[in-house]
Design a protein around this nucleic acid. Structure first.
Lengths: 163, 163
DNA sequence: GCCTTGACTGTTATTATATAACATATCATA
DNA sequence: TATGATATGTTATATAATAACAGTCAAGGC
């Protein structure tokens, strides 16, 4: 898990490199799987990558519309759903919002750490977690397909700022 | 955790006793903490307890309205939020719905198992789970306040029915 | 070449979920 | 019983999401 840890930090978005790397990885993934990463979809992913926090569908729509894409909700929802279904983005239910996947390389069960103060969302790899849930569910005879884990709290930067 | 296991099953709602027991426990809890379990609030909890799956706020509202309580959304939302804040109910974000807490006795971090087929929601005690998340979060310097864990899959009954 | 097919994009219209703001009523207690 | 805090109810509105349908466009069969 040591290389997971790198993608784990509360991102400060100080460098452009990571976003570009992620975008490139997304394109590889799309090519490999025969997905069509069309202009709207690609741009939607870029918008999410550039955003500091998670973005609501209507925020994304506003940006897309300003750039000449469609102006109506389904435009944003379709692109976002495509990204989510193909593991390029995640939906944060607690915020009714979406965020780019920060490690699109491997399929994964991620947990999300939502900072109450700065509203940024960090994607944490937590393999033990799905193991623990799997065990609990198995006891109940429940077969798990997908899991959502969302933690609300305070990120390192905000904790320090307050101290 | 052996006594947790009992409250863990996919509830078949075959007996009235559990619901009554939970309601009684809720009243104890309210009394002990000086909460006001008013008629709307109490009735809202009953409605959730009688429901088979989780209920949307507007479903609850419909029932409340039919019984002479207020007819507008805030009536339901306020009662539901009261119950959630005081650990007597849970909000299931994936479903935009609410469910009665099935073990209101102890404060707990619960995980929810949502059956895709029958849409019922089971509350699973999963202490290891919050431990695992806590560890992952700590690594990122993140302080966790509250966690939501929701698993989508298939419950025992529905798995068997399909077999 | 051209036509069919299916996936994608866009639209209008509508539905679903949730909250703000304010008036009235009720309770706890001084 | 007057008073402040809490609760209930209302109207109005904000926010989030989807249904249904029309036009576009590229890929493959003929």
């Amino acid at each position: 898990m040591s290389d997971e840890t790198a993608a784990f930090c509360c991102p400060d978005h100080s460098g452009a490199a990571p976003a570009e790397a992620i975008l490139a990885a997304a394109e590889d993934k799309a090519r490999a799987r025969g997905l069509r990463l069309t202009p709207v979809r690609r741009r939607t992913l870029e918008i999410l990558l550039q955003a500091h926090g998670a973005l609501g569908a209507y925020d994304v729509l506003e940006r897309l519309a300003a750039e000449g894409f469609g102006t109506q909700p389904p435009v944003a929802y379709r692109a976002l759903n495509f990204l989510v279904e193909n593991g390029l983005a995640h939906r944060i239910r607690r915020l009714n919002a979406f965020t780019a996947c920060t490690h699109p390389g491997h399929d994964h069960r991620a947990a999300f750490l939502i900072c109450e103060t700065c509203e940024r969302v960090t994607e944490a790899a937590a393999p033990d977690l799905s193991k623990a849930l799997g065990a609990a569910a198995a006891q109940a005879g429940f077969t798990v397909e997908r899991v959502t884990v969302e933690a609300v709290g305070r990120c390192r930067a905000c904790t320090q700022a307050r101290a």
